[in-house]
């Protein structure tokens, strides 16, 4: 088959396109942190999830270790069941504490995992028992006012 300079240009074009797709996936999208094919799923019940959304990051010590994949409302316990998919490289003890936190003052909400001391690790399909709900601004203000009122009363 004859080779022409046109073939070279087309080859370059395709290589550039593939490189661009790889840059998007790895550098912009950071694909290597979260790979859904090597992951395990855990759930947790939260009294109040605040503004947590599906796809919110799950962080351990600030490092992204997974994502929220599903949020459901339970009609048995009247709380929210949050399903998280974690990278299988990161395992957490059974008594890990999951809390809904906010990055910055007005930033997005994420789930922070604080490792416990158990020897048994969380497996696929396990449930995190210790959870901490989201801070809701109204409750926060309400509690603050209540505390202040209590203090004023005690004076």
């Amino acid at each position: 088959m004859q080779r022409t300079t046109m073939d070279l240009w087309v080859g370059l074009f395709v290589v550039t396109g593939i490189i661009a797709l790889m840059i998007l996936s790895l550098k912009v999208g950071n694909l290597n942190v979260y790979n859904p094919s090597h992951s395990y799923v855990i759930t947790g019940n939260f009294e109040n999830i605040g503004g947590l959304k599906v796809r919110a990051p799950v962080k351990g010590a600030g490092v992204v270790v997974g994502r929220v994949t599903d949020i459901q409302f339970s009609t048995q316990t009247y709380d929210a069941i949050v399903t998280m998919s974690l990278d299988s490289r990161f395992t957490f003890p059974k008594d890990t504490f999951a809390s809904i936190l906010t990055s910055g003052l007005l930033g997005e909400q994420y789930i922070g995992l604080a490792a416990g001391g158990d020897d048994v690790m969380l497996k696929d399909g396990d449930k995190v028992m210790k959870t901490n709900s989201a801070m809701v601004l109204e409750e926060l203000i309400g509690r603050f006012l209540f505390d202040k009122a209590a203090k004023d009363d005690s004076l």
Binding site: L24, V28, G29, N30, L31, Y34, P36, R55
Partner: peptide, 19 residues
Amino acid sequence: FWSQMQSAVDFRFDILNGF
């Protein structure tokens, strides 16, 4: 700049859908 971008852009939802 990079880290905020990387934590916000999701491979499946953003890049794959754009593709």
